[in-house]
Design a protein around this nucleic acid. Structure first.
Length: 476
DNA sequence: CGTATTTGACCAGCGC
DNA sequence: GCGCTGGTCAAATACG
């Protein structure tokens, strides 16, 4: 990817908006880029640092994302925007399948907000039509292995002055930057670059031959690529279930998402020294699976891939949801670094070098590791993350909500059992970005709701309607 | 003893 | 057909 240099947000914005394109035009037309310009400065001033640039996935980071034919789209979320924001403002979640008739997102401002607060409203009434949209130039792109996938990158910086806690009322979206990223595999991306440098017309996409597959076809020069994306519903060829990929920065190897999982396998996959763990939902009859692995280049990043939708409610108790184990994955014991059990968001930890031996190259890449990535007590890998190892999705949710003035609520709601921090909720903003009356009995979504909300809204933005009720059915 | 994890083996898909 | 790879199975093992 291009280097956004000093991390200045405007570098990214200009980079993004530079080539004339439908999306960039929209941005410019709505003057949002200008507003954001000021926003960035204000936010940066508040947090005492520059807004980090959007990160475009490093193709070498996740071998998970290598297969070119399985590239739908990618969404990256800037620091300060996490799962909770998706729940609060799902309209911010962009899908290339959710554009209006002209293929463009409709930009609006949230009402009742003095700050520039751009969200995107999509017209989902455009089924099964090829859509054209321009994407920001990608110099690093990567593939997601299954069609109908969403990719979320959540940076959760809890060190020092947590970004999400640094904002004032009503500015929940100031740094909520979502970026569509075209996906492709590393090698192909490189090839594209070469070809673009020569003659864009020479580009051919092997996926073009497959009408059933989602096609992300560059058809314009590198700096202003136009992509054609077939409808998602017809793109679903190889995946039976919707797949959502979550990327988040956390030390915990198996963050609690509210469901109980049984680990059934672990394997080293090509291109990633970190093992991938395979989990199945422990609920009887539920076929939801997930894969958890660390990024190849950045072990701070935990990549969780969910396959399918739970057709049941989450277990009543969440304490056992983390791997479902009694102790192995629990955080009540010192972690692999010998650190004390998780109790709260803590100060920064030293960044530690990742101690994989450089010469380590097992003949059989499958199971060279004597540890389980899902077992914090057994997995002795030090992780160079500064995050507290006990962060789970509920915590992320809470941290996200805490962007706005906080309100103590009944701690019985969504108690994780992992810390005693008072639960806080967003006073001013509801789940849909609407203003709420101040209430004191808001139920804080628990892990299942967080997870479900993310999944549902991801899929909803992809044009997939999901029914997560107890019927066990799902509508696609 | 029940439950969950570990891990070697196996299978299927894909590319050559 | 063969090898590679990702995904899964299931017996052994670990733990409370």
């Amino acid at each position: 990817m291009s280097d956004y240099g000093d991390g200045n947000f405007m570098d990214m914005v200009s980079h993004w908006a530079a080539p004339p394109s439908p999306i960039s035009d929209v941005f410019l037309q709505t003057n949002q880029s200008e507003k954001r310009s000021g926003l960035v400065d204000r936010v940066a001033a508040r947090v005492g640092r520059k807004i980090p640039p959007l990160r475009i996935g490093n193709p070498s980071q996740f071998n998970l994302f290598r297969k070119p034919k399985t590239v739908p789209f990618s969404i990256e979320i800037s620091p300060g925007l996490n799962q909770s924001v998706l729940l609060q403002s799902p309209s911010q979640l962009i899908s290339p399948f959710s554009f209006s008739d002209d293929g463009l997102p409709e930009m609006v401002e949230n009402p009742g907000d003095n700050h520039a607060n751009t969200t995107m409203i999509f017209n989902n009434n455009v089924p099964h039509q090829p859509m054209h949209f321009d994407l920001p130039p990608q110099e690093d792109s990567f593939a997601i292995p299954i069609h109908n996938s969403a990719y979320i990158q959540c940076h959760v910086d809890l060190v020092g002055s947590p970004l999400v806690d640094s904002f004032e009322s009503g500015v929940a979206d100031e740094t909520d930057i979502i970026k569509l990223v075209s996906l492709d595999d590393e090698s192909k991306s490189e090839e594209e670059d070469d070809e673009y440098s020569q003659d864009e017309d020479t580009y051919t996409d092997e996926d073009d031959d497959n009408a059933d597959e989602l096609v992300v076809k560059p058809s314009s020069p590198k700096r202003s690529r136009k992509y054609e994306v077939s409808n998602m519903m017809t793109a679903r060829k190889t995946s039976k279930d919707p797949r959502v990929i979550l990327r988040m920065e956390t030390e915990e190897d198996h963050p609690d998402d509210g469901y109980r999982w049984r680990k059934y396998g672990q394997k080293i996959v090509h291109g990633n020294p970190n093992p991938r763990s395979y989990y199945k939902c422990s609920h009887k009859g539920c076929n939801v699976k997930k894969q958890v692995e660390r990024g190849a280049d950045d072990v701070k990043i935990l990549v969780t891939t969910y396959d399918g939708i739970h057709g049941h409610t989450a277990p009543a108790t969440r304490s056992s949801s983390s791997s479902g184990s009694k102790k192995r994955s629990g955080s009540s014991v010192p972690d692999r670094l010998g650190r004390p059990p998780f109790s709260s968001f803590s100060a920064a930890q030293d960044v530690r070098p990742f101690p994989y031996p450089s010469t380590w190259a097992p003949q059989d890449m499958r199971r060279p590791f004597p540890y389980s990535s899902a077992s914090a007590t057994q997995d002795m890998r030090p992780l160079p993350s500064s995050l507290n190892p006990g962060v789970d999705m509920t915590h992320l949710y809470m941290k996200g909500l805490s962007k706005l003035p906080t309100l103590r609520v009944n701690q019985n709601h969504g108690c994780t059992g992992q810390n005693d921090e008072p639960r806080v909720i967003n006073q001013n903003q509801g789940l849909m970005g609407q203003n709420y009356e101040l209430k004191t009995d808001h139920v804080i979504p628990e892990g299942p709701e967080v997870y479900k909300g993310i999944i549902e809204r991801l899929l909803a933005n992809c044009g997939v309607k999901v029914d997560c009720k107890n019927t066990g059915e799902k509508k696609l």
